[in-house]
Design a protein around this nucleic acid. Structure first.
Lengths: 128, 128
DNA sequence: GAGTAATTAGTAATAATTTCTAATTAGAAA
DNA sequence: TTTCTAATTAGAAATTATTACTAATTACTC
């Protein structure tokens, strides 16, 4: 579903459809909800397209971001890619991120902070 | 207040009280609630102690973090220092961060995500 | 006041992102 | 289909921020 939308939007915006881009869409459709880092996305794409360079991957992720197809979030020292673009909650414990789709909660937060929420990161205490 | 607690805790933990550390406490007491980046904290401390190196500043901030006296958060490419250590909400728009102390909201989020919240970052849509 | 381990400043190393460029290629037009 | 051209790619280099290392200095104990 996301892949289809993404492809359509790339076309509409006049971007060329290269094999590198197609593989990137495949990979993000498959693992995007696990919030992979750029490096992890690169590794995953290399499985299917071993010669893709980091720089190509990087610039393509930026294209997707510019088109509003992915969200980037910064966790520790790394940039994570997120396919869920609707306002939602990321629950973060350590390196783990899980999505919580709770429009109710998002709406309440919007009411309290006064502004349109892009996303919410809830950082939990490390379990001991 | 925070400064006093911090100094006490440094002493208790057996750390030496150096002029560099005292200036750092001064600065964080003063500007800590603006969530300065490490670089900004360094600049601010240099105003009062021009010879302090980034590396000294850095390791002292890490000491404060280890003692639970500051929280570090990663925003874009930079590390921000936060003096507010109780579970709370950071409202982020662009490079700006403001604190929202709303224990009610934090408690509700904790209930929904199931876990002890360290802090919550609410990232807002960029204003156009 | 001396001794000692912690701290400091300066520098080097690392890690992740971002930029740059020559060669290649997707897609439009002939 | 073939040609043309601007967009895209791979690889390398530059940048940026953080983290690690080390010799010299210093805060604190006795």
């Amino acid at each position: 579903m996301w892949r289809k939308v993404a492809l359509e939007r790339l076309r509409k915006a006049g971007y060329k459809i290269t094999p590198q881009r197609l593989k990137l869409l495949d990979v993000l459709e498959r693992i995007g909800r696990s919030h992979p880092s750029l490096r992890e996305v690169h590794e995953a794409v290399k499985e299917e397209f071993p010669t893709i360079s980091f720089s190509t991957l990087y610039s393509n992720v930026m294209v997707l971001r510019d088109l509003g197809l992915v969200e980037l979030l910064h966790l520790g020292s790394e940039t994570r890619v997120e396919v869920n673009v609707s306002p939602h909650v990321n629950v973060i414990s350590g390196r783990r991120v899980r999505d919580l789709d709770d429009p109710e909660l998002v709406r309440e937060i919007e009411r309290k902070v006064g502004g349109r929420v892009r996303f919410v990161n809830v950082v939990l205490e490390d379990e001991v």
